[in-house]
Each structure stands twice: as structure tokens, then as C-alpha cells.
Design a binder for these strands. Sequence first.
DNA 1: TCTTTCGTAACATTTGAAGTTACATGAAAC
DNA 2: GTTTCATGTAACTTCAAATGTTACGAAAGA
Lengths: 154, 154
Amino acid sequence: MKRDSKLSGVLHVLLHMAEIDAPVTSETLARMMQTNPVVVRRVMAGLRAQGYVRSDKGHGGGWTLARDLESLTLLDIHRAIGAPPLFAIGHRNEAPGCAVEAAVNEALDSRLHQAEALLLSSFGEITLASLSRNFHRRLAERRAATTSGDHHGH
Amino acid sequence: MKRDSKLSGVLHVLLHMAEIDAPVTSETLARMMQTNPVVVRRVMAGLRAQGYVRSDKGHGGGWTLARDLESLTLLDIHRAIGAPPLFAIGHRNEAPGCAVEAAVNEALDSRLHQAEALLLSSFGEITLASLSRNFHRRLAERRAATTSGDHHGH
DNA sequence: TCTTTCGTAACATTTGAAGTTACATGAAAC
DNA sequence: GTTTCATGTAACTTCAAATGTTACGAAAGA
């Protein structure tokens, strides 16, 4: 079972867009995500439908953030890309005539739903802005490490 | 992304075996799980390796429970079938040179791990015996409903 | 009008799970 | 002992879903 990395890919792209502050083409984003422009458009379409990003055609066109990162959470993004199933496990038949099946499904489903609720609510608490801050902190650390390695430290 | 239903399938099978109290062939189990005998053997092999079930060849052979259902939890079963990934989402590259990627991965992974821990621990609290009790309760209810429908109620 | 860029349908590729076949091994029945 | 029933397992095939690709249309600016 292959893992869906749409969410992670989109987040990656959005954070990069926040750094650039000018329309970015699908072509460029595709290179960042190591994928294809068409795939980018496909997934970004969901974000546009929610008004999180804008797309413009023609010269100088491309994708632009339409919202403050502070106002966007992982949950928003997850929903915008179609709220794909979070879990890799589940049960087989939805309408079990078998009482054993029903008992198993009930037990599994209740725990799965509980875990899902927790996960989604934690997604709701993470803003893209906080991810961006985390990113900048890393950049700074990385720069500091490099500088000291170059014997330019104090 | 297709959902893995091994866990649910195996639970189904184990509960049925508990009812039968005689060796059950892969053939029979396969019919219960609506699959193929070889697939059954494949997944049951993991349970046998843990000593949860026994298999015997030849006439009158088949699969037998080797443990009290009270001593088995969903977590045990999950591990016995190879502890397949619980989540359908994840990130792309494990070794990100990109600081954005690192920030995104950290945020996602930490929440995912947290949710996973919760889910696994809840699996650890559900015994197969409790599932079996749930199953018998359902049977009784179903029987009661049928009886009253047949005008045999008091 | 020509180039750029998105929009999207249709098709191709890939990948991993699941299913299948085939044959070997071992145990009980006869 | 040999026949039948059952598991063990490797190898192969099939299938489904995700992803990638091609192709062409629409809109916007140069």
C-alpha cells in the first residue's frame, strides 16, 4: 500500500510560494515537488476552489497565495485536497450479514474514528505560518553552522 | 489508495474458529473471508509463528486456535500479520535536503506518530474475547428479534 | 498574432496487493 | 505402502489505484 503524499507535497509547495511573492508556474512547482505540471494543477485546483490560492493565465501568470498563512491550518489543506482517507486499514464489506463481521467492524471502526478525530483536530491546530517559522528557524541554524565551519564565527 | 483489510479478515476468521472447536481447513476459512486458500495460509503463517494458532496436515488437519481469546488483543494480531502501516498518508523523501521539506515532515510525522501510538494502545486493550462476547450478544439479539417476529414471544 | 500559462480530458505507466497455479511435504485412512 | 487430504511456499498473473503523460483548448499579455 503506497502512501499518499499529496498533503506533504502541497504544504511544501505553499511554503515555497510564501517565500517567492510572485506568481509561480506549475512548471516550477512541479520541479519542486519532483512531479509533473499537470499533477500540480490537479491538486492545486482544490486549493483554488477554497480560495486559498489564485491562478492566472498567460505571461507572468502562475499560482499565488490568496490567504495569510496564519489563517490556514493543515486541516484546511487536507480538506481542500479532497480529505483523502487517513488510514491504510479498514474492513472489507460495508453490509455484513455475518454477526462476526459486524462485531469486528464495530470494534475497529470505533477506534479508527476516535484516532481520526484526534489527528484531524491536531491538524486544525497547526497553521502554515507556524510551519513557515519552523522553516526559517532551520534556515538560520543551517546558516549559523555553515558560518562557524567557515571560521567566520565570533 | 486501497485499504488493507488483513486485520479485519484475520479477526473474522479467528472468531469463527473459536466457535467451531475443531481444525478448520484453509479452504473453509477462504470461503469465510471470500478469498483464496493460499492467501489464508499466507496470513495465518504470521499467527502461527507467534504461537497463536496451530496448523496440521493431512486428514482431519487444518487450523486450530492455540491460545485463549482472552489472552489475545488486536495489537497482538496486528503485529502478527506484520504490523502493516496504519496510515495512508505520509511524506515523500526521507532525506530532505530542503529545509521546507524538513519542517513539513517534522510537523506531520510528530502528529502521525502520536495518533499511531494512541491507536495501537487502544488496540492493545481490546481482547478477542471481548469481540467474541460482542458477537454472541448480537446473535442473541438477532434471535430475539426473529422469535418475536414469529409470534413466539411472551 | 504569437507566446505563455492554466484547464482538463484521455490515455499510459507503475506499483503493490491480491489471487492463482504448481508442486513439494507430511499425516492419516485404507 | 499407497492413496487421499491437507498445509508450505515459490513463482507467476491479474487487478486496481495512484501517478504520470500527452494533447489540445482557452485566456491573457507581449
